[in-house]
């Protein structure tokens, strides 16, 4: 029992004093997962829009792939990325194994199907008559997509939430392609696993608390935006 209390006390001490090691880990987590989410938005929203608006042969197959990707286990993604980027892998010449770049790549692959899937669903649930109306008012195709995206902003927020939430709390892929290297690729989740297996529960608890607070803050912010726009 004492080590739980000690752990929590130590954890708050570390957070309040801005322990350098903890701070570095938190910043790297935010950087890696933030970059991965941003990339997945860049790539996933256009894919989601394309799949949501168009009918073409093979569309269902693509949608089924995206749906599978939404549930892909991070360790499997990690393993595939690892095999591609290690020294004699097809992308080995980039020398990105055990770097934050590799982690961004893996997390991007995890988040991208989530963002595409949520975007597609968001676009599809809009009233089809809206499209006709927009076109009837003389909007170009580009303007129409923009208006549809604005209309679907709540599902798009859900896409951001799902993407970021998935990668910030993901551990398998980050461990495999990042290696949990102190000061280089150690993010919150891998640090929690590593520190707990070393018996350093104070750092593990501190990071868990920070991770939970972060996930809560991100969701609070998004919920706030979501509810505000609903009330308008």
């Amino acid at each position: 029992m004492t080590y739980i209390i000690n752990g929590i006390v130590q954890a708050f001490w570390m957070i309040v004093h801005g322990d350098r090691q903890v701070l570095q880990i938190v910043l790297l987590s935010l950087g890696v997962s933030g970059a991965a989410t941003a990339l997945s938005l860049l790539c996933g929203i256009p894919i989601g829009v394309a799949l949501g608006l168009n009918k073409f042969p093979g569309r269902r197959f693509l949608v089924s792939l995206i749906n599978t990707g939404m549930g892909a286990p991070p360790v499997v993604v990690g393993l595939v990325v690892l095999l591609f980027i290690w020294r004699n892998g097809p992308l080995g010449f980039f020398h990105i194994l055990y770097t934050p770049t590799a982690m961004i790549l893996a997390q991007f692959i995890i988040a991208m199907p989530l963002v595409s899937g949520f975007t597609m669903a968001g676009i599809q649930q809009l009233d089809p008559k809206l499209r006709l109306q927009i076109r009837a008012l003389g909007a170009s195709r580009l303007q129409m997509v923009w208006i549809l995206l604005l209309e679907a902003r709540l599902p798009l927020l859900a896409a951001v939430m799902a993407g970021f939430g998935a990668v910030i709390s993901e551990v398998g892929a980050s461990m495999m392609v990042g290696g949990n290297i102190n000061g280089q690729t150690r993010v919150m989740t891998t640090a929690i696993v590593g520190e707990a297996s070393k018996g350093s529960f104070d750092i593990a608890i501190a990071l868990s608390i920070i991770l939970m607070i972060l996930v809560y803050l991100v969701n609070l912010l998004l919920t706030f935006i979501q509810q505000r726009s609903k009330n308008q």
């Binding site: 970059a35 860049l42 394309a50 168009n54 990105i96 770097t99 770049t101 580009l142 997509v145």
Partner: peptide, 26 residues
């Protein structure tokens, strides 16, 4: 079809640029 394709290509260019920037640091 026109717009999403353009956006998609832009996204791809952006990602490639980011990847290159990231790997350039090694």
């Amino acid at each position: 079809m026109k717009f999403p394709r353009a956006l998609f290509i832009n996204a791809l260019i952006g990602i490639t640029a980011l990847m290159l920037a990231a790997t350039g640091c090694t």
